[in-house]
Design a binder for these strands. Structure first.
Lengths: 190, 190
DNA sequence: GCAGATATTGCATATTGTGCATAAATGCGG
DNA sequence: CCGCATTTATGCACAATATGCAATATCTGC
């Protein structure tokens, strides 16, 4: 199990992320330096930049990871595409929903600063690309354009669903988001 | 005409942009400093940051501007939505297509560096938001979610269309892009 | 041409981010 | 359990980014 080191690395990254989010939420991005974050996380500034290429990167969530099994299941799936997509994405959003206050903090931070908005947009964009790739693999050759369109729809649904969840006081993130994705079926049926 | 100053400002910004694009295309982002760009554009570094908040910003195209008249026409329009959208966007892409080599350069640059990819993604994202806003205004209250979905589709179409145009040797950008938007009708009809 | 507004510039400075060398920690085979 | 190989953390030096501020130059309208 060479992944003891790996897990340690993930834990350190997470520690830094938390420290960064808390600090920036309290003081604003411009009043928090990489050094402050490092101090709060108990690492040297040099190590900070070892984990994150630039200060703002520590404020973004890590990219979601799908299990190999889940990916294989989705690609080989024969059912309604959006339903299978919901199955694929469910666990991801379950996880997000577990720490409501923290997620809300990160959300507020993202909106508080132009640079972070840019980064957030890009994060969404990358996620959309990931989804498009999976859809394309499932639909086979020549499905590129269709996959991009569908991924765009799904991504838009996620944004709307996430937004409504953030504004709510209670309820599951997965429920809110997946409902919006399912709604997309009324617009776009495959 | 107080807009002599304004036009002058736009021209200076454009001069800086061109200088930046040419330099970065030749040497790569990491080997071009803000000072080099300033020198090439004939302004002081301080002035550079007066026009652009950070180095990379000079490498992105200015946001498209729709005429008030075009916006009003679109919002009040009664025809097929995607057709009206094509009318609205046409002039924008005509303009882009006028300078093929330059646009291709900017495109190559965007793909050459992670930071620029992020920025490019965000630029697309903002454009999508702009379109969503216009669609929402046209469709009236409670159309928020629908507008976002449609804008996502249009945005995806633009990306695909732009990509195919860039790969071509000749042909109009507007034609390539608008064709893809029209294609979206086969998927999504309003 | 003059007064007021706007744009440009220089200078000082905090912060960012990287290369490189060194030290510490970890996992592995014996 | 121990030392060896590899990965990870750190310190230091330094170029580049980006901003505030004050001074200077340039434009606009009268």
């Amino acid at each position: 199990m060479t992944n003891l080191r790996e897990r340690r690395r993930l834990r350190t990254a997470e520690t830094i992320r938390r420290a960064a989010v808390v600090l920036v939420h309290a003081k604003g991005l411009d009043h928090v330096t990489a050094e402050m974050i490092s101090d709060a996380a108990g690492v040297s500034p040099r190590t900070f930049f070892n984990y994150f290429p630039y200060k703002e990167a520590a404020l973004m969530p890590p990219p979601p990871v799908f299990s190999e099994a889940a990916i294989a299941r989705f690609i080989a799936g024969q059912g309604i595409l959006l339903d299978d997509l919901v199955d694929l994405l469910g666990p991801i959003f379950d996880e997000i929903g577990e720490d409501r206050d923290y997620v809300r903090m990160t959300h507020e931070i993202s909106l508080s600063n132009p640079k972070l908005q840019v980064l957030r947009n890009s994060t969404f964009h990358e996620f959309e690309g990931l989804i498009a790739g999976l859809i394309s693999r499932r639909l086979g050759a020549d499905s590129h354009s269709t996959a991009l369109h569908m991924a765009a729809l799904v991504s838009a649904s996620i944004k709307v669903g996430f937004q409504t969840w953030v504004e709510q006081k209670s309820g599951s993130a997965a429920d809110a988001i997946l409902a919006k994705i399912r709604d997309a079926k009324t617009i776009f049926d495959v």
